[in-house]
Design a binder for these strands. Structure first.
Lengths: 146, 146
DNA sequence: CTTGATGCAAAGGATTTGCACAAAT
DNA sequence: ATTTGTGCAAATCCTTTGCATCAAG
């Protein structure tokens, strides 16, 4: 984890950004929780460490602009997740219509299929993508049973 | 278009919702513009017809809860698009990092591949999806050339 | 020491709500 | 006639900004 944190510190340095307590704390949060986090959730984790909500937003913006984290937005959920070190540059999210839970489905087989898809779409539209999110809406296993 | 509008009216009736001018006007907007629309954009279309912004939001909510439209949210873009009558229950959006434009890529080949993918994921996670959005982030054709 | 980042309070923008009135069934 | 929806204004929520202070390089 500290090796990864050092890489983040280097990215900040290279971009003339200072290594500050809020930036370290929030980066550590993303490194230890491999899932989507929103501004308020992050604030709940760090407010005890004298980090304000505006700073959370400003830090998220810095990390986002430096490709350390990426935005995930589904319906009215606005969250961020780690982008750097994420070998899979794709994410599959499933939003349940009933319980409103957001699941993350990641696996190798899917990844391969999606990469193939990606290259096809890129060629066709002459665009270049560096991340793909697949968002499915429907009923999750539990809600189907009820 | 009026046949489709009647179907929407029937859905509203079946759910004890009244057929009102704002609901008709906003439904017509989705039927005539097969693309993503946001609350403010819709309001610009209908404000001349004495329809207020809160009513736009309330109407979008009614149409959404009755599966007539679906939400599309990418980064800070929050939009809606027609869900009913949409044979393709999938959408491929491409968000350009530079110009921030949102493109829509739809074609039959993609659809087939994605449907295959879908059935695979559903089986694996015992979930049932009724719509899929694929969101790609990267550089669009124009911005790659610059 | 210089520059950039932070906390606080306040502003801003988007969305929602209370309430009296209007429209639909 | 009754119920539901609407417009208006105001409230709320989330996010951003101004500014004086503080910390990093």
């Amino acid at each position: 984890m500290y090796a990864k944190l050092n890489i983040i510190k280097n990215i900040l340095k290279e971009n003339d950004l200072k290594i500050t307590r809020p930036r370290i704390e929030i980066s550590k949060l993303f490194l230890t929780n491999d899932c989507h986090l929103d501004a308020e959730g992050i604030y709940n984790f760090v407010k005890s460490k004298r980090i304000s909500l505006p700073t959370v937003y400003r830090t998220l913006d810095v990390l986002y602009k430096n490709d350390i984290i990426k935005k995930v937005s589904i319906d009215n959920i606005k969250a961020y997740e780690l982008n750097l070190f994420n070998e899979k540059n794709y994410h599959v999210h499933f939003k349940c219509k009933i319980c409103k839970k957001l699941f993350e489905y990641d696996d190798i087989e899917l990844k391969d299929n999606i990469e193939f898809q990606l290259s096809f779409v890129e060629a066709k539209y002459h665009a270049k993508a560096d991340s793909v999110s697949i968002i499915m809406d429907g009923l999750c296993e539990d809600c189907r049973r009820k």
